[in-house]
Amino acid sequence: MVVITGAARGLGRVTAWECAAQGADLVLLDICADLPGVPYPLGTPGQLEHTADLCREQGAAVLTAAVDVRERSAIDEAVARTTDRFGRIDVVVNNAGIAAPSGKPVHEISDDEWELMINVDLTGAWRMVKAVGKRMCEQRSGSIVNVSSTAGLVGYRHFAAYVAAKHGIIGLTRAAALDFAPMKVRVNAVCPGSVRDDTSAEGRMLAEIARALEVSVGEHEQAFTEAQPMNSLVEPDDVAHAVVYLACDESRQVTGSVLTVDGGFAAR
């Protein structure tokens, strides 16, 4: 069974659907509320339930919960409910994250803005790894997939906190992979490039990056498309397929790896 954070919409929704299509049962977690300091609406309870319904249509058994990855008690409760319901956790996809507050040079970032970004995008993933690590080690199997970004591989102007958090995800992935390898628990990361905002998935990451940079969505999409060596934006299911590969037994000898899905952007 698979646990996915940030599952209400966007990459989380598409990844959940792909896992359900492969026969997985699911626990779908999302904050289901807005966060002070994040200048755009986050996932809602209705969106999370819609994701769950799409997965149930594929035949999956689905459990949902409102979980803020900044709160250890909420994570621990969700993990306990998961094991009570399904008996084990085979896969965790750490997808929860925010793109803003961003859009300013590093010396203008406030302490609160920095701490919010790191707490959600990096420390939230670590909390999930910590919560499931012991259980996976005891069952001597498991796969953790951390969603980083090309911002975990290269720098971007005016996104220092986001870049730092996503670079940190790569470091966390590699260190945890070594810690867990003797227990046959794998940890990998996927680094999406510029992902198109699919309306059916209600994704809005690219739009929020455009907003942070104070440019139109169309202008931003054109600039990123031109920057991609393959001259196209990444589709959400391109990333979901990569996550499914890292989650399943077909990648049983893959750990501590970073799979980049960016149309060649980071290869330049």
Rank of each mutant, 00 (worst) to 15 (best):
V2L: 11
A7G: 13
A7S: 13
R9G: 02
L11V: 05
E18K: 08
L35I: 15
P36F: 04
G37W: 02
P41G: 05
G43V: 03
G43E: 01
H50D: 15
H50R: 12
A60Y: 03
T64R: 02
A66S: 15
A66V: 05
D68N: 13
V69Q: 07
E71V: 07
S73L: 06
I75S: 01
I75M: 09
I75W: 02
D76E: 08
E77S: 13
A80V: 08
T83R: 10
D84E: 14
R85D: 09
V93E: 01
A96N: 08
I98D: 00
A100L: 09
S102G: 11
G103W: 00
G103L: 02
P105A: 04
V106N: 07
V106F: 09
H107M: 15
E108W: 05
E108H: 13
E108V: 12
S110K: 14
E115M: 11
E115D: 15
M117Q: 09
N119R: 15
D121G: 01
W126Q: 15
R127A: 04
K130L: 14
G133F: 07
R135H: 08
C137H: 06
V147D: 00
S148G: 08
S148A: 14
T150R: 02
T150G: 03
A151C: 09
H158D: 13
A160L: 10
A161D: 10
V163K: 00
A165N: 04
K166D: 05
G168H: 10
G168K: 05
I170R: 15
A175H: 07
A176D: 04
A177F: 12
L178E: 06
P182M: 07
M183L: 07
V185Q: 02
R186G: 01
R186T: 04
V187L: 12
N188L: 10
V190C: 09
V190A: 04
G193H: 03
V195M: 11
T199D: 14
S200I: 06
A201S: 12
E202P: 12
G203K: 02
M205W: 06
E208Q: 14
E208M: 12
E208K: 08
L213V: 06
E214M: 13
E214Q: 06
G218E: 11
H220P: 02
H220Q: 03
H220G: 04
Q222K: 10
A223W: 11
F224L: 10
A227I: 07
P229M: 13
M230P: 03
N231P: 03
S232A: 09
V234L: 03
P236H: 11
V239T: 12
A240Q: 02
V244D: 00
L246G: 01
D249C: 05
S251Q: 05
Q253H: 09
V258H: 06
V258I: 14
T260C: 06
A266W: 11
A267K: 13
A267D: 10
A267E: 15
